[in-house]
Design a protein around this nucleic acid. Sequence first.
DNA 1: GCGCTGACTGTCA
DNA 2: ATGACAGCCAGCG
Length: 89
Amino acid sequence: MAGRKFSHRVKNVVRQIEVGHVLSYKEVAKLAGNPKAYRAVANVMANNFDPNIPCHRVIRSDGQLGDYNRGGEDKKRALLESEGYTMKT
DNA sequence: GCGCTGACTGTCA
DNA sequence: ATGACAGCCAGCG
């Protein structure tokens, strides 16, 4: 499947995100090679979560955190703020 | 191989 | 500004 490399690419991109820095799903998708595949990106995180990937650094384009398979938005926000990122609310 | 679902995004009302 | 609808891609049954 073509998504095989895509999912790998997404993971690679997210893994490169530095502390205190966040990327929107669309940004990740774009860096992954498919700016329109933001859906697939979310799917990759949702179904294929990896402990090596800081999925919590991936947020929505609206500035919202979205969901998180590790404890929900609350946990996600806690992690981001702990790393130095504060959302606009 | 076809169809549905999903941690989304963008536009219309 | 908020709510709802439609569109997009990849993965799994």
